[in-house]
Design a protein around this nucleic acid. Structure first.
Lengths: 355, 355
DNA sequence: CTTTGCACTGCAAACGTTTACCGCAACACG
DNA sequence: CGTGTTGCGGTAAACGTTTGCAGTGCAAAG
């Protein structure tokens, strides 16, 4: 059974005017005498009238909504991106529809379906195959690719992953002189993970270090990191440093290491990626890479809105800067960069050194 | 500028038939000869035609979509709920639109707006005031309240929070004999937190324990728990047990306790709520309450779908069962309930005792 | 008193579907 | 050969809006 909301006609009848006048009052355009306006407004309020989106979408050919598609929705990462995205959307008076495909078979259909409910779509990398993205753009649907490699003909907004991971890895290899680094994350799992693995490799090549072994392929949640590292250690391996694809796996790794009575960073250094709130709080401080998540979402929304307005720039490839954040978990002592420990009831922001 | 997709008319022209026939072929209803069907299908494929949602929504008075509204989207909690919800929705061939209000001023407007784009709405407790929910139901919009207290005239699906928290707290008070319990979480923050605080209080009353002090009001993220407990300990207080509103704050609390050289559970016991994957993995094992998140989402979707079909049962108040999961962090030794430690490369599921 | 201009408001045509209804051809049957 | 019957497929109305255009009435100007 469908919606039963009042329509223009009912309001018009009640106010004793035509539907055109009600429409004009409702959207505040055109010439309407103050007396009529008041009368109509009263009827509108009385019935809590809100114009039907379907009717409006049909004639205006726009939905006043933007869509954003993610693979999954767990983790503070996405939350911040969505926040930034929503903020910009609200400024532009459009709704935001979120979708998580959860890697289901029907993903492409779901996205295609959503595309028909919004004016533009932000698609996170790895959600649907390139071919499906093409189909959308070919249809004339404004699309912005989020956090995924450049793709000809499609606007992209992303953060600098590869170079940052290369800098971080170089810090471990060159500054600390570590030799056996292990990468935890699935390079085939998401564009983010791919780019980070690339940076990891790049650093090894550039510093002339021995090439690293196979990555430990696992998911991006804390429990995944915990399990992966637990397995590794239980198998008798003990790398000098564990480079994780994101902070949450890193946190899981830290717990796994400590569970076995080993110390971070004295026995094993651990690094993350994303700089989630928890990263700066834990004892040694997690060395990681800060990404402007919120801005990533906001910029994506802005670009998408321009696109929807017809300001198409399909060759756009906006890359937001990232910063390596050196804390304690890589082995840099607190004394080295000022007091980085929490104490005495103060929760002053831990100092950072960024490269 | 708006969508440019092909319309029924173009397909009809190309195939040399009327729009009615195209519509029939597209949706597979009515009588169409095999020859015509083939011809039309070809044209449809050729243009990648998909019927416009707006046009369809207008005449059918349904959107083939369900909405689900959350306050925020961080944490594995929501992810699982959404998963279950989506799964049921996909079975019923309807789309799912997710929305996170992020406690913005415009929340009510956002929800009202979304209500006009879907056939039914699942609203998580605390997202919008009761009055706004009423407005929706008054308009005839199918609404199911998710994880929030019963509300007359509105169907509700939730998990048993209060009783479970009472059982857990009683375990700490009676079985362990702890006396100074501290609650971390904001009772006014969400219906979940409210119910858990209630259970916490209830246990104190029932066991005749001294009433607890004020709760430590903070958010539901790991970093919130960490900061809250850090402050507490730095202020010189040392409760015997910390009861957290959810697992993530509990994990933050554990890290904060350990950061200060104290042990969990020997010096301070810590408990959570939700049973997220990480809860079973950490060293001592987090004592918590297991909730059927996925089922919560799935059941909500099922109820909402029934409601949309006209099978209204506004007095429904479905309460899903929860289980207290005793692990080590409350002080129950591993030896007490079998080997609950991870070792020897095995990651066997940690044993549980449930009440 | 007629004309002109202006502010206001109604009419009606889209927008892209779905579907009830009807016409038409072909065919079977008496 | 007339009369149903049946299977296809076209016509048109309806869904709820927006908006160009035209009409109305009134005041000011001629």
């Amino acid at each position: 059974m469908g919606k039963r909301g009042p329509t223009l006609h009912e309001i018009a009848a009640d106010a004793g005017v035509s539907i055109a006048t009600v429409s004009r009052v409702a959207r505040g355009v055109g010439q309407v005498s103050p007396a009529t306006r008041r009368k109509v407004q009263e009827a509108i309020d009385k019935y809590h009238f809100r114009p039907s989106h379907a009717g409006r979408a049909l004639v205006e050919r726009r939905h006043s909504a933007l869509g954003i598609v993610f693979p999954g929705l767990s983790g503070p990462y996405y939350s911040d991106v969505i926040n930034g995205f929503e903020e910009e959307a609200i400024n532009a008076r459009v709704s935001v529809l979120i979708m998580g495909t959860h890697f289901l078979r029907q993903s492409v259909d779901m996205v295609l379906d959503m595309a028909d409910r919004v004016d533009g779509l932000a698609v996170m990398g790895g959600v649907i195959p390139e071919k499906a993205v093409r189909r959308l753009t070919d249809r004339g649907e404004p699309v912005v690719l989020l956090a995924s490699g450049p793709m000809v003909g499609v606007a992209t907004v992303r953060t600098e992953n590869t170079a940052a991971m290369a800098r971080l890895t170089t810090h471990l290899l060159a500054d600390h002189g570590y030799e056996q680094l292990v990468f935890v994350g699935n390079p085939d799992g998401s564009p983010d993970a791919t780019a980070r693995w690339q940076g990891f490799l790049q650093a090894h090549r550039r510093t002339g270090a021995e090439p690293p072994g196979e990555p430990i392929r696992t998911g991006l949640q804390q429990s995944h990191g915990f399990i992966a590292v637990s397995r590794l250690l239980d198998d008798g391996e003990q790398p000098r440093a564990i480079v994780c694809a994101n902070d949450e796996t890193a946190l899981g790794a830290v717990v796994a290491v400590m569970d076995r009575g080993l110390r971070v960073p004295e026995d094993i250094a651990v690094t993350g990626f994303d700089d989630i709130p928890m990263a700066g709080l834990m004892a040694s401080g997690l060395t990681t890479v800060h990404q402007p998540m919120r801005e990533l979402g906001a910029e994506t929304a802005r670009q998408l809105l321009r696109h929807v307005e017809g300001q198409i720039d399909a060759s756009l490839d906006r890359v937001l800067e990232t910063q390596v954040v050196i804390r304690g978990s890589c082995g840099c002592g607190a004394d080295e960069y000022g007091d980085a420990r929490l104490h005495g009831g103060s929760l002053a922001k831990r100092s950072r050194r960024t490269t």
